[in-house]
Simulated scan of single mutants.
Amino acid sequence: MSIADNLIAFTLAATLLTVTPGLDTALILRTSAVEGRKQGLRAALGINAGCLLWGAAVAFGLGALIAVSELAYDILKYCGAAYLAWLGVNMLLRPRQSLAPAEAEGRPAANWFLKGMMGNLLNPKVGIFYVSFLPQFIPQGQPLIAWTFGLVGIHVLLGLIWAMGLISATQSMAGVLRKGKVIQWMDRATGLVFVLFAARLALSRR
């Protein structure tokens, strides 16, 4: 395939991957609906920062270590599962009651950029995906590092566009989504999703 064909094929594949519902979608929807546009955007930026860091790891060979080392993969997998489970259990047991600042409820404010980024970095499947997926769209003879960053950049751009669409969709229903009972339900539902993803990650194989 030509360079243009490779870019078009990757963009289509990455678009399908981006819009497929998953943990990132759940995190962005919950954060923007309950805590507002700015926090939703911070979560989205964190998620995509995680993608960029994974892209850098793959470009410089660290992703290949995760792909070939069972021990490295398992360590990262169980750390990621434990982190997701911790987030989920906290949402299940301590759902927000209102949109008052977190400090007013006796707990520190959430750093959704960091949580979004760590959720991606501690998921070895993202690294495995990049290691196995990206090379298929790098034309023979082209610089590996430059193309890896370029393709990851396309994926991140698509992710940000999708995130902005999700955030905008929640804002149109903000009046309903920010009622106390709805906030509690969304926190608990998202917490359950996180716990289920944690279990799935912990029990998954390559």
Rank of each mutant, 00 (worst) to 15 (best):
C51K: 02
L52E: 06
G55N: 07
A57R: 01
A57T: 03
G61L: 09
G61Q: 12
L62V: 14
A64Q: 15
I66D: 02
A67I: 10
A67L: 14
E70M: 15
L71A: 15
L71K: 12
C79Q: 15
G80I: 04
G80H: 10
A81L: 12
Y83S: 14
W86M: 13
V89K: 06
V89N: 06
M91P: 00
L92R: 09
L92N: 07
L93N: 11
R94V: 13
S98R: 12
A102G: 03
A102Y: 01
E103G: 04
E105A: 13
P108K: 14
P108I: 08
P108E: 13
A109K: 14
A109G: 10
A110G: 10
N111I: 02
W112A: 09
L114H: 00
G119P: 04
G119Y: 06
G119K: 01
N120A: 11
P124Q: 08
P124H: 02
S132T: 14
F133M: 12
L134W: 00
P135H: 10
Q136E: 13
L144C: 06
W147I: 06
F149C: 04
I154Y: 01
G159I: 00
I161W: 09
W162N: 09
A163D: 01
I167S: 00
I167D: 00
S168D: 12
Q171E: 10
M173S: 10
G175N: 11
G175D: 09
G175S: 12
K179Y: 03
K179N: 13
K181Y: 08
K181V: 12
V182E: 01
V182F: 01
I183C: 05
I183K: 01
I183L: 08
W185M: 12
W185R: 11
D187Q: 07
G191I: 02
G191V: 02
G191S: 06
L192D: 00
L192E: 00
F194Q: 05
F194I: 02
